[in-house]
Design a protein around this nucleic acid. Structure first.
Ligand SMILES: NC(=O)c1ccc[n+]([C@@H]2O[C@H](COP(=O)([O-])OP(=O)(O)OC[C@H]3O[C@@H](n4cnc5c(N)ncnc54)[C@H](O)[C@@H]3O)[C@@H](O)[C@H]2O)c1
Ligand SMILES: NC(=O)c1ccc[n+]([C@@H]2O[C@H](COP(=O)([O-])OP(=O)(O)OC[C@H]3O[C@@H](n4cnc5c(N)ncnc54)[C@H](O)[C@@H]3O)[C@@H](O)[C@H]2O)c1
Lengths: 233, 233
DNA sequence: CATTTGTTGTGCTACTTTTCACAAAAACTA
DNA sequence: TAGTTTTTGTGAAAAGTAGCACAACAAATG
């Protein structure tokens, strides 16, 4: 077995766990690799490979025992760690996420929100809101390790610094500024704007032509002509 | 040149475009591969490869001309297509996205929102809200191709069907149910819950040990012991 | 004009991740 | 018991993706 827990694998494991929890609550006892594959959108062989890699065995013919799988995944993924996070920037998405109750069986909760204008945040978000100046002390006092960043993009890097100085070890960044992971602070960027634009692109690419590849080639050939006539000497 | 526009490449191109627009508005005229690489978090060599693949030439020593690059990217990516999208499920995230004004230079806009309880949606979202029953006719009348899905997870697949039947070609799915791309309808899933859980995992993995690989191995070895003593015969 | 400097363009290499394909094993059947 | 079915486990092949290293070349310098 290799210490081979790459990023995609971890995401699949988290998804397996979610599905297993649901299946269990529905009274199922075993599950096959193709069920799980369907549920999270990957090939059954990959499901088997994943489990094989983690030395989680199933039964030939009988599939995998849900209880066992789910318990082992919990150990590997760090089950009921009762993690708590903070949200910096309690605007539209910040507030939405603060009220999100769909996290895996209450595995973690939002401890507080921070904003430069806390008085504008509606109390309906249901968590305490503090001014930005209190981030540092709160993080230290409450031992917070992970933050969500959802401030306007022009203060993105500034807030990033504040969070790093406060000792935050991981940031889920919703601003369109691509922040970078460092030794002490892991960044995951979610860029919803890019996601939508990407979807548009995939849709037109899918819609326009019969033979996708050919059409792309032709689009790019047009470009080539333009290039020649306009810029290249 | 190959018709080699893979998914990651497209996302990088979208990010380049965003950066180029910003640089232009700041008065810059040329840019180097390492600037762009820094900005979107990839190696300079990859930036050059990308442009080389698309036959977008730079000048040895002089870098790339921003105007030219940005114009060509617009052609490739489908510039001012004035796309319009709808949002199904105008709850917390649905409403947040409806009010998001950060899309690439107004490239597209949210045409309408749909909800099973339109009367509960605050008028401050600033777009027209209609009952779910009107999705089909609206999509046909207004030639909508892309939708955002942000309904509760238990009606996720039901709404997915409605959207497909209405002729929607692409869905950005925020529900934790993994929907699947079909011939006629591309799905991109964004699972914020999993993203947060993943970040937690990466943080503890990063925080706990000095030698990450070793510790992972040991975690998994523990599991192995449990396995042997509990389940495997 | 010769030399130095800085940056692109890209073949090749290396790596990561997924899929294929099929033997092996367990569970059913009769 | 023998035969059939079903599903796992996995080595090997394939596909996808990024990075290196360096020649080529334009611009700047003296
Ligand atoms: N709304 C969306 O759907 C959406 C989608 C994707 C990305 N984003 C990005 O998320 C970020 C926030 O978007 P939003 O729509 O929620 O904006 P918003 O304006 O509703 O919220 C921003 C919040 O940040 C607060 N803020 C401003 N400066 C601050 C500072 N220095 N420290 C702490 N808080 C500060 C503001 O008071 C406000 O409450 C933006 O970067 C945006 O690009 C938003
Ligand atoms: N809030 C978050 O931060 C967040 C984050 C990640 C994912 N999600 C997911 O996004 C989805 C929505 O989350 P939310 O927090 O906005 O929930 P929400 O309850 O605030 O919003 C759901 C909305 O969908 C509407 N709705 C219900 N049934 C419908 C139907 N059949 N057709 C159309 N509309 C219908 C409801 O009236 C409500 O307005 C959920 O699946 C949730 O898991 C939310």
């Amino acid at each position: 077995m290799k210490g081979n827990l790459n990023k995609e694998l971890v995401i699949r494991l988290l998804k397996y766990r979610r599905i297993l929890t649901q299946l269990k609550s529905l009274g199922f006892e075993k599950v096959f690799s193709n069920n799980l594959g369907d549920a999270i959108g990957v090939a059954p062989a990959l499901v088997r490979k994943d489990f094989s890699l983690l030395v989680l065995g199933g039964n030939k013919r009988g599939g995998y025992r849900i209880d066992y799988l789910s318990e082992q995944l919990n150990k590997i993924l760090g089950k009921t760690r009762e993690q708590r996070i903070i949200i910096v920037g309690m605007g539209k998405i910040g507030s939405a996420v603060a009220q999100y109750k769909g996290f895996h069986q209450g595995d973690f909760e939002v401890a507080a929100g921070f904003d430069i204008a806390p008085e504008n945040v509606l109390p309906t978000v249901g968590i305490p809101i503090y001014p930005t100046s209190e981030i540092q002390s709160f993080v230290e006092r409450e031992h917070i390790e992970v933050a969500i960043l959802s401030v306007p993009e022009d203060v993105s890097t500034e807030c990033h610094k504040i969070l790093k100085n406060a000792g935050i070890r991981g940031i889920l960044n919703f601003t369109p500024i691509e922040l970078k992971t460092t030794q002490n602070c892991i960044i995951h960027n979610i860029n919803i704007g890019v996601e939508i634009e990407n979807l548009f692109f995939q849709v037109v690419k899918n819609t326009l032509p019969q033979d996708v590849e050919a059409s792309l080639a032709s689009i790019i050939d047009e470009e080539l002509v333009d290039v020649d006539s306009e810029d290249t000497p």
